[in-house]
Design a binder for these strands. Sequence first.
DNA 1: AACGCATATTTGAGT
DNA 2: AATATGCGTT
Length: 768
Amino acid sequence: MSIKNEFQVHDYLSQLNKSQHEAVVNSHGASLIIAGAGSGKTRVLTYRIAHLLEKGVKPSQILALTFTNKAAREMKLRIATIVGDDVAKYLWMGTFHSIFARILRMEAKKIHYPSSFTIYDTTDSKSLIKSILKEMKLPDKVYKPGDILGRISSAKNDLITPNAYARDVNRMTADKAAQKPMVYEIYTRYMRHCFKSGVMDFDDLLLNTNILFRDNPETLLNYQNRFQYILVDEYQDTNLSQYRIIKKLAEKHHNICVVGDDAQSIYSFRGAKIENILNFRNDYPGYQLFKLEQNYRSTQTIVEAANSIIANNKGQIHKRVFSEKPVGSPIKVLKAYSDVEEGYLIANEVKEQILKQNCSYKDFAILYRTNAQSRIFEEAFLKRNFPYRIYGGQSFYQRKEIKDLLAYFRVVINPNDQESIKRIVNYPARGIGNTTMEKLEAQAIAEDKSIWGVLTTSPLATLNSGTQKKLSGFIQLMLRFMMKVTELNAYDLAVEVVTESGILKELHQDKSVESQGRIENIEELINAIKEFTSNKIEAGESPSLVHFLEEVSLLTDQDTNNDQDDNRITMMTIHSAKGLEFKNVYIVGVEEGLFPSPMSSDTEKQIEEERRLFYVAITRAEDTATISFAKSRYKYGEIKFSSPSRFIGEIDQKFLDISGIDLSSDSSTLAGIPTNRQSFNSPKFQRRESASQPKFNISNQSTSPVNFNFNQIGSKLIPGTRVLHDRFGQGTIISMIGNDNDKKAIIAFDNTGEKQLLLKFAKLKILN
DNA sequence: AACGCATATTTGAGT
DNA sequence: AATATGCGTT
């Protein structure tokens, strides 16, 4: 058999150390693999699956669950290089959400859902909660949609249905104490609405899987038989809902392998239970334990420093992570007086390291606690023309024009999706306004139908004939699309929707740069659909829009265009850096009040999670790690002062290089770093700091910009002129439009694309 | 229905 | 600070 030869060619077992080898070949029964940071976890998982396949297990009998789509894709790819794509493609490998969405679609009838159910993202859910609040006449000042969604989400992750919620004393009293006694009622209506609309949110995908298996023993049995081997990655970050699904599926064969690291559990805020990994031994008493303790990623200094941090946590699974790589350089600690200076210092460091180490931009990562911190570094790098990529924040699929188009698709597939209908009914403008929609919604509630149901089956007596005509035009338009769902593939239908709906026309009429960008985004989406369609046709799978939507709803921007070979500095939150590695890592904003986050500083448990997050951050580094903090930073437009994070003091000082810190300012501590839990919030301390704030001249001498007053020398701004903008960096003027006070320049910026700027406000500088 | 101005909210991480 | 929401005006 050709598979055998493939294995011999790769000779994968010889690439493993002893404990990795054990973890790969002992593939029967229950296994717990504790994988320290950088210990070759992915390699072990990959080879374990390859090994199973070699032993004759069919790929379709293996279920492998990962945390992100990206992890699944990469692992599948690696397995494919060993066993071939024709085998690997039959593996059930993906995130919990995508795998069980797939199963739920097949089994939808059994839980009384349409198999064409659509998936709501957080924005959709919040907007639904808003309309429920309106319906219940509750103030959204008290019942903040985000908060309520969080309560609902937490209930779902704990498998608490609305009925159980009402009986849950803890939740009910907490709601009452928070002056929000109606959460239970909102939850009930939210669930009912989703069910009637044929819609699931992220948590529903897991909750409904539990319900499916609970109420349909024969279906459960079917999947228990199918999945002879189950593997779960990042087990420490599974929630109760996920845990129960796995437990049930593995009940028959007990061939369950979970991989994780309790020291890297960082998602309890969204319901993950670290207990799942800690209690594995109780769930499967005959389990085998494998510990991967050798770190192949980082220098000894980094590994030891990380160990000294995590030693502050209690109740861990004992392990001794070590490295046999060189000792490496100490962890540099940088102090900045302001957030802006922090950006400047880090940019300097990057430049210096690039020259010293002979490495390039892609070897650097800036990791922060909150997405909002990215801006400072974006500005610092733009000024110096450093290429970078920011991950997270607003993703492609969250952009307005993309959501609009996707809403069309969703309505075509599932016309009962009310939030989507509301989104598109008057986009492009059709003269169907709020009043009309409110009447329709009221009627829908009264007749217990969806809005679409009202539109297509009820007499619209309360509306005047003009409005009725407009609505009928919309209905006819959507019906035309719906009739073509099965006949056309995703691409052809998408093209038809963009043109027939008038979206494209609308955007073309608006000549602004913004709508230019929107058209480009729409084109990008259409291209993605084209690629999806041809891939599916090639693979002999269905290229319908239904399947495209399925894939897209569970995608994040982490999963899209990840060109490894383009040479940029990476900027992301520590959460999204989990699982990644970089030669040089900069952990920024390591301050009290930011990291640990004030929202996670109430209990020691929360602090421990923040500490694990810090551990994750440090262990991303291969060669060097740098920590920085700023004494002051802007928050909500106000200057806030802060002191270095307690976590810096928790690192064994012998691993730190604090020469970058000005010792003069605070003598009572080691370079201003509290070595125990003291803080520096005394007014005296703060006043002194604010008075001594230095002004830094950040302008780059080599491109020395000339200050410029547009009224006098505006005529110098002609197409082709190179200019510098504070925020967007360098660019070339494409054209000038407007007159006098409204004069604008259309500028193609090197890093951020085309922008249209009003000269009155844009502080442009001409470059020589 | 589009626009302009005032006020509120965000900055807690992501499937 | 930047963006979102809301209300009143055209």
